[in-house]
Amino acid sequence: MLSKALFLAALLALGVFAGPALAAAPPEGLEARLDAILARGAPGVSVLVYRDKELLYRVDRGRIAPDAVLPIASASKWMTAALVMTLVDEGRLSLDEPIGRRLPEFQGPSGEITLRQLLSYTAGQGGLMGMSDLLQASGITLAESAARIARRPQGDTPGTVFRYGGPSFQVAGALVEQVTGQRWADLFEARIARPLGMTSTTWGHPLRPDLDPATVHNPNLQGGAYTTAADYGRFLGMVAGRGVLDGQRVLSEAAIAELQTIQTTGKPMAYRPPGLSDIDAYGLGNWCELAGTEGDCVLASSPGAFGAYPWIDRKTGLYGLFFMKHHLPLVVGPTRQARALILSAAP
């Protein structure tokens, strides 16, 4: 009879993570779906699936270490919006206050932009293709980042058009640092990472993995987080748990509801990135792939350009992520097929 150690080793060899929290077997056919991701060129992929803050199962395929730290690109947005919402919960920031009241360099129409518009890419500051935040130096402050963005011409009237990936999150970060007097990375550690037990998450630049996080004063807030699959799973557990994980409240239920309330209803979706052009709704820092009946989101996600694909499905109660480093447009199809299998197999 196999010893427990040998049994666990056999499971790991098959690509299935086993541990005290393992509560279910992966659905039949999931490994084949993950192999389809590898066939698109991804060197390795991990999938973690949870319910009620419990890891149901984990599967690792290809060349990926269980504790791999990867750049997650736009999967960072969900975490950025969550940190901003901790200040909204405290009443130190308002989603609907014009930013010109706190950042006087924003004048005229740009001064009327709100935090809600910044976090939903409806602020009229352009889209991803402008790369105005991605081209900024990492050594300047978030305040200087926002000031440089303020000097750029306004593209659209605030609140009228959705253009994904503009520089808006840097402005939101400048507001956070202004009202707290603390650096973004320190605030994230104190308000999100430490309470959730996220021990391997740092902020930098998605295209500069060589940067020492300690020297980065202008982290790219829409795409600059580096983390592990387990760390991101802890964050998702808090969001799925309506702001609470392991008895620790990080966000109010109202803040979680705001994050997953559709902000783009009636607005033209003027720019969506490759691989995500079929999604028609956006909340605060996350996409809504399936809307509810009250302007809420049933299936929320925040895919990144490097392939990380976190999601929460309110209908089944399942949530999880696909964790990898590869071009999202190449793997988005098989990733969604794998998720569909997971959701269809939910008891």
Rank of each mutant, 00 (worst) to 15 (best):
Y226A: 07
I140A: 09
S138E: 15
V216Y: 05
Q178W: 09
W184M: 12
G224H: 05
E144C: 05
Q182L: 11
G181L: 08
F169L: 07
V171I: 13
A193C: 12
L207A: 13
F235V: 07
I140Q: 05
A150D: 09
G165D: 06
Q182W: 06
T201C: 08
D231N: 05
A172I: 07
D210A: 11
L236Y: 08
R152D: 14
Q170H: 15
S138V: 11
Y164Q: 10
A185G: 05
G204E: 13
R148W: 14
L142H: 10
L207H: 04
P153G: 09
L245V: 14
G124I: 00
G247K: 09
P195I: 11
E258W: 04
F235W: 15
G139N: 06
L134W: 13
G181E: 04
S132F: 11
R163F: 01
F169C: 04
E253K: 10
R152N: 15
R249V: 00
L259E: 06
H217G: 15
L211K: 07
E258T: 11
P167V: 03
G166T: 07
R152I: 07
E177A: 13
T141L: 11
G139F: 14
R183I: 12
H217D: 12
N218S: 10
A137L: 12
Q260A: 15
A174P: 02
L251E: 08
S132P: 03
G243N: 04
I192S: 02
S132A: 07
A240Y: 05
A172V: 01
T180K: 09
L128I: 14
V171K: 00
R183K: 15
F235D: 00
R249E: 07
G243V: 11
G233Y: 05
A214V: 11
M129V: 03
Y232W: 14
P153Y: 05
E258V: 12
L245C: 13
E144S: 04
P153K: 01
T227Y: 01
L134M: 02
W203Q: 09
L134F: 08
A137C: 04
A137K: 13
G241W: 02
H205S: 09
Q154T: 04
D231S: 13
G130W: 08
Q170S: 02
R242C: 09
D212L: 09
F235R: 03
G173E: 01
G233Q: 13
A190D: 09
S132W: 04
D231L: 11
P153A: 01
